[in-house]
Amino acid sequence: MWIYEKKLEFPVNIKKPDARLAKIMIEQYGGADGELGAAIRYLSQKFTMVTPQAKATLNDIGTEELAHLEMMGTIVKQLTQGLTDKQIKEAGLDPYYVAHGLGIYPSSAAGVPFSAGALQSKGDPVTDLYENMAAEQKARSTYEYLMDLTDDPDVLTPLKFLREREVVHFQRFGEALGIVRDHLNENRTAFISKPDFMKKR
């Protein structure tokens, strides 16, 4: 189960509302490589993971992603606080506004609703850990693109933190993959053979 902590993992204190930024920041809330997908991906994969180290890694990184989801929601919320109708129209946030008002809705920057189609839970521990390493890299790239498109230090600071976490998570998943491979007694060639426990069926 989970308990909630009434604080963010890292502070978000945005002074200047900005409709254009809000429109793109939603990508990391509900986009294909966003924090919601990351959390659901790891917290679903954990049920079929092997080795104590890799199970804990999925469980705990999945949990941290929920804290990142909250940070991204907070960024969008603060960027939209106090926007005028004119600002919403000029920045092109109006299609989002007619559907959701200033509510925080998990969609991509292009308006595509969140979909589990962007993630996998394959039941194969090696496959899943590779997927996760790729996912962390995709999220890192997205944060870098978002950082390219803003110069507001209040937005950049939490984005830098979130980007760094992708790098750390990539490292931990890589270590977990090494542990799982040793456990399955698999060599480290690029061709991946089916682990024994899957052959039995």
């Binding site: 009434k6 604080k7 963010l8 204190n13 909250e70 929601g73 603060q78």
Partner: peptide
């Protein structure tokens, strides 16, 4: 609540 500005600060 954590998402409100009043709960936050600059580093």
């Amino acid at each position: 609540w954590p998402w409100q500005k009043e709960a936050n600060f600059d580093l």
